[in-house]
Simulated scan of single mutants.
Amino acid sequence: MTRAVVFAGPSIDAATVAGLAPVEVRPPVKRGDIDLLLAESEPPTHIGIVDGQFLQGLMISPKEVLRAIDRHPGTVRVFGSSSMGALRAAELADEGMVGVGQVFEMYRSGTVDADDEVAITFDPESLRALCEPMVNIRVAISAAVDRAVISAASGAIVVAAAKELYFPDRTYARILRLPAVREKVSDPELMALREFLDTEAPDAKRDDAVALLRRMDLG
């Protein structure tokens, strides 16, 4: 019998997840959640980790994910994407965790390596993100450069300024108001970038979450 559980929240909402695949949606994973799943009388055959807790609770450890893989070899598959899932999948890809999506590839290739690249804060009730993850910023600014919304030099300035902020403070509105940005990027570029970010910017975390659900292949 197939049973799939996906831990998701800010990256993709539960209603969207449920509409894309027959899974049980749980809030962002924290330490102990997977151990509890495995202790149930009928543990899941598929576990998807999209979002996880950073400041809100203890982070899920690589060892806990490994216990899921090693305890039921061949019968429990663990997938990761987008946020905490991408981070853990990059660490554990050689141990059997299945990584999916652009954010996973960024970690796997070494393009990014810090936890704060995917860390965000979120409303504990609605699970709505309260800031912008650094990986999303990188992907969105890269897309803006590719589409000639801003120059490559201006894009590098915006990304560097965003990286300097503590992760809960990263919002596009705050980033574009920073002196390091306003003093070096022209007003026309800033106006064009604001419009792009409001209307056309890709959402790497959400896109990767959708890719994870498809990769789980639950029919």
Rank of each mutant, 00 (worst) to 15 (best):
E164N: 15
V103F: 03
V17D: 08
R147H: 15
T2R: 14
R31D: 13
D208E: 02
K184V: 00
I175C: 00
A14W: 13
L55K: 15
L197I: 05
R67L: 11
A153Y: 00
S186M: 01
Y107H: 07
R214T: 12
M216E: 01
Q53P: 00
S109P: 08
D198C: 01
M216V: 01
V103Q: 11
L176N: 10
A18G: 10
E132Q: 15
K184R: 15
R147P: 05
A39C: 06
V6L: 06
D35L: 09
A119D: 11
S11Q: 02
D187P: 06
G80I: 04
L213W: 05
Y166M: 06
T75W: 11
D198Q: 12
G32L: 01
A21N: 10
E200V: 02
D70H: 14
S154W: 02
H72L: 14
K205L: 07
D123T: 02
M1S: 12
P43Y: 05
G74C: 09
L218S: 07
D13Y: 08
S154N: 03
A21W: 03
R147S: 15
S83Y: 07
Q53L: 07
E132A: 08
K184I: 00
A162K: 02
T199L: 05
M84T: 09
P188G: 09
A156S: 13
C131F: 00
A173Y: 01
S151D: 13
F79T: 04
M191I: 12
V185K: 02
F196G: 04
F104D: 04
L165N: 14
M59T: 13
A156L: 09
